[in-house]
Design a protein around this nucleic acid. Structure first.
Length: 506
RNA sequence: GGCCCGUUCGUCUAGGGGUUAGGACGUUAGAUUUUCAUUCUAGAAACAGGGGUUCGAUUCCCCUACGGGCUACCA
């Protein structure tokens, strides 16, 4: 690696929710930057006014914050190379495009979108490039005075790169190794649009140069346009400063074929966005991992291992560990199908390994969302400790632990009723009497008392343990009954037994 | 169609000229848990195909097939 200061950027366009692949790109950028004591920059590529979506930029910022991947420089944090929104840098790009025209590496083109559309329809494999550019209306085909007249008349026009003939453009990708392209195959991409905004191709090169980006990571879908960028770096005279490229493998649909899309989430029943995204225009809510109950640590962990591993069998990594162990050349080349089952496993592992107190505020929110207000912090902590091993999602805490805060709403009567007998009623009546005089309300103590009563009444443990659980929990699940009773407390336990007894005997 | 990238269990992947091709998710079967989950043990499960190179290829090379991406005044 060169001695250049490491500076990387995540450069999304604010057109909607942040997709799994996008967050992974952020992650890899972030890990690489932190690993090499570099800077991580967020740059908003809002050059397409038609696709711009209100609120999308804030949403991206919120996602980064949720994940804990805070940029060192961004539109809101500012930085030495501000502004970080390309729309605010608009004036800057024209200069470079004009420079390319003067140098003969670019030209003005006056064809309208409609005309080009027509050509594409009529001419098979039409490309605005070497073969057809002479027959179109541009500063290469027109006479100089014609061009001047058009320009003077403010005729709408774009600036296109002039792809050279018979050249081979190649570079070394940090993930893929040597990659090369034939310039004859590539069309003359638009650099500056008629509205004066740059296209991605120009903007990414100009800004990466101006912002002193040292390494550029982006999705594999950008690979085909890499030669255009390479040429631009060269023509602008910045080749020595060009970042090292890494084209990340794509995240694919779990079934079928193609890139993972937001539609797949809806179709297959899992989120593809980091957080809920509400599209005001069509009034549609696209679910996110956060709201579904994912821990940011787990989310990052699963994304990191989708296409990367450290060469050992380790799969659970903290962010710090990832920073320490991440290496771009251990990123795999092939696309990875997203597996929601494994994603959930990561989350379950993270919930299990997390301390109750670090889960506390999120779990409290889950309960509040269901109308349960938790006032006793200490009690909450104990409840979390009891049930966290059985939760896959944060939202599972409701189903797994609601009975700690309110009486069961429903009872699994069928698990009890068929085998319910007078002897059992008698047992629980006796239990009620015994419990009411207990002073040491501890799980172990309760178990001892319970077992003694079993002996005395000559019933089978298995026959009264399950009903006891149903009385307290409502169903066949949860931690050890005596732990539950211990946490519930004396009054509540007795109340629940009494209430259920009425139900079972009715 | 053209160009580019890719291909190890169903999925994510490790490995690499000679290995019983390893792990994880999921799955199957057991054990533990007088509930459920956790946990534990065991099992099934892969080098796309064909040519080379080589004493020997899953590993290196070529071709084919398949998959993916791009082919906009979108990023």
């Amino acid at each position: 690696m060169s001695d250049k200061k490491v500076r990387v950027r995540f450069a999304p366009s604010p057109t909607g929710g942040l997709h799994l692949g996008g967050v992974r790109t952020v992650l890899f950028n972030y890990l690489f930057a932190k690993k090499h004591n570099g800077d991580f920059i967020l740059r908003i590529e809002d050059t397409d006014q038609n696709r711009y979506v209100e609120g999308a930029e804030q949403y991206i910022l919120d996602c980064l914050q949720w994940c804990g991947l805070t940029p060192d420089e961004s539109p809101v944090a500012g930085g030495p190379y501000a502004p970080y929104r390309q729309s605010e840098r608009k004036a800057l790009y024209r200069e470079y495009a004009e420079r390319l025209v003067r140098q003969g590496h670019a030209y003005y083109a006056f064809d309208t979108p409609d005309e080009l559309e027509q050509n594409r329809k009529e001419i098979p494999n039409f490309q605005y490039g070497q073969i057809y550019r002479d027959g179109l209306r541009n500063s290469l085909s027109l006479k100089e005075h014609e061009v001047d007249e058009l320009l003077d008349a403010q005729t709408p026009h774009v600036i296109r790169i002039k792809m050279p003939a018979d050249e081979r453009v190649s570079f070394t990708d940090m993930i893929r190794g040597h990659v090369s392209f034939e310039t004859n195959q590539i069309d003359d991409k638009v650099l500056l649009k008629a509205d004066g905004m740059p296209t991605y191709h120009l903007a990414v090169v100009v800004d990466d140069y101006l912002m002193k980006i040292s390494h550029a990571f982006r999705g594999e879908e950008w690979l085909p346009s890499a030669p255009v960028h390479l040429l631009l770096w060269d023509y602008l005279g910045w080749k020595a400063d060009m970042p090292q490229w890494a084209h990340l493998p794509l995240i694919l649909k779990p079934d079928g074929h193609g890139k993972l899309s937001k539609r797949d989430g809806a179709r297959l029943g899992f989120p593809v966005y980091a957080m809920n995204w509400f599209d005001a225009k069509i009034g549609e809510l696209t679910p996110g991992f956060r709201e579904l109950g994912f821990l940011p640590e787990a989310f990052l962990n699963l994304l990191a291992t989708l296409g990367w591993n450290d060469g050992t069998d380790q799969e659970i990594f903290t962010l710090d560990e990832l920073v320490e162990k991440f290496s771009i050349d251990r990123v795999s080349k092939a696309g990875a199908k997203f597996d929601f089952e494994k994603a959930k496993w990561f989350n379950a592992e993270w919930i299990k390994k997390s301390k109750a107190r670090s889960l506390k505020s999120e779990v409290r929110k889950v309960f509040e969302g269901k109308g349960i207000i938790v006032s006793d912090d200490d009690y909450l902590l104990k409840v979390i400790e009891q049930v966290k091993d059985r939760c896959v999602l944060l939202t599972d805490f409701y189903q797994q632990a609601a009975y700690f805060f309110e009486q069961p709403k429903e009872y699994d009567i069928n698990a009890v009723k068929p085998k319910w007998t007078g002897a059992k009623t008698e047992f629980f009546n006796a239990l009620l009497v015994t419990l009411s005089s207990v002073n040491m309300w501890e799980p172990a103590e309760l178990e001892t008392i319970f077992k003694a009563l079993i002996e005395e009444k000559a019933v089978k443990a298995g026959e009264v343990l399950l009903p006891f659980r149903i009385m307290l929990v409502g169903g066949k699940f949860g931690p050890h009954v005596f732990d539950i009773a211990g946490l519930l407390g004396k009054d509540e336990t007795i109340a629940r037994i009494e209430k259920a007894l009425v139900l079972f005997n009715s």
